[in-house]
Simulated scan of single mutants.
Amino acid sequence: MTSESAHSSAPADNRLLPGPILLLGAPGVGKGTQAQRLMGDFGIPQISTGDILRDNIARGTELGRAAKSLMDQGQLVPDELVNGMVGSRLTQPDVRRGYILDGYPRTLGQAEWLDSHLISLEEDAGAVSLPLVAISIKVDEQELLRRITGRRICPVCKTIYNIHSKPPRKEGFCDNEGSPLQHRSDDTEQAFTERMKAYNSLTAPVIEHYSRQGRFREVDGSRAVEEVTASIEAALRHLRQAGE
């Protein structure tokens, strides 16, 4: 599925303050597409830990240098550094109305740290801050496998096709560029199975954490893109109203 920056669906209720949103979903559910639509509807940024990490390294921040040193040694970046980078990002003015988190919090420890950090930001600023809510896009695993293994990408214009649901006019070639389409090495059944195991083991405690606090909803991601967006925004309104 392709990400899109603009769409024709009706805008969300302008009276709703979205606040921080964690968009969850297994590989292939369409999180990127839905994040772009929410950004357009609410005028809030998407915050990717990958982007934050690359930005800190490029700017040579203290956190970026520490992370780069570990990565150069083949080590994972620990929660302490990731948390620090996210905390720094959340001080920027474009997040005041809300933001969409991508790839974070990935673990229960990160979720607990973020909850505490958001409370401290509220206390420091002396203003009301909304708690993070989590919305998961759910798609049947067999359908996800079909989406992933059928995915083909144009290396030139980056258009994404699917040999099952969105095939190119000429098999194996991009409609726009005529370039041979690529099949990513991680878009295989074996790779998908491993990614699902990792996703489920990491995400289950995060979902349980937010469920216990009444800050979690699940939506059906198998429907049309516009319908999924409407369901996400309805879930968000419900969560915000329930928290008032």
Rank of each mutant, 00 (worst) to 15 (best):
S9H: 01
A12M: 02
A12R: 00
D13G: 04
N14Q: 15
L16W: 03
P18K: 07
P20F: 04
I21R: 00
L24I: 14
L24C: 05
G25H: 01
G25R: 01
R37N: 11
D41W: 03
I44A: 05
P45A: 12
Q46D: 07
I47L: 14
D51E: 13
G60E: 06
T61W: 05
E62P: 05
S69Q: 13
E80L: 11
M85W: 05
M85E: 01
M85P: 01
G87W: 00
L90E: 04
T91Q: 15
P93Q: 11
Y104N: 02
P105E: 09
L108R: 11
Q110L: 10
A111I: 07
L114M: 08
L114P: 00
D115T: 12
L118Y: 06
S120I: 07
L121G: 03
E122L: 08
E122W: 05
E123Y: 02
G126C: 12
A127Q: 14
V128T: 15
V133E: 03
I135A: 05
Q142R: 13
L145E: 04
R146N: 04
R146G: 06
R146F: 05
G150K: 05
T159V: 14
Y161G: 06
P167L: 02
P167H: 10
P168V: 08
P168H: 11
R169V: 07
K170I: 08
G172H: 03
F173G: 06
E177W: 03
E177Y: 10
G178V: 08
Q182D: 15
R184D: 11
Q190F: 11
A191N: 07
T193W: 09
E194P: 07
M196L: 12
N200G: 06
T203K: 01
A204I: 11
R212K: 15
Q213W: 11
G221D: 00
S222M: 02
A224N: 10
A224Y: 15
E226L: 13
E227T: 04
V228D: 02
S231E: 09
I232A: 05
I232S: 02
L236Q: 04
R237E: 09
L239C: 12
L239M: 10
R240L: 01
Q241C: 14
Q241L: 12
A242M: 12
G243K: 15
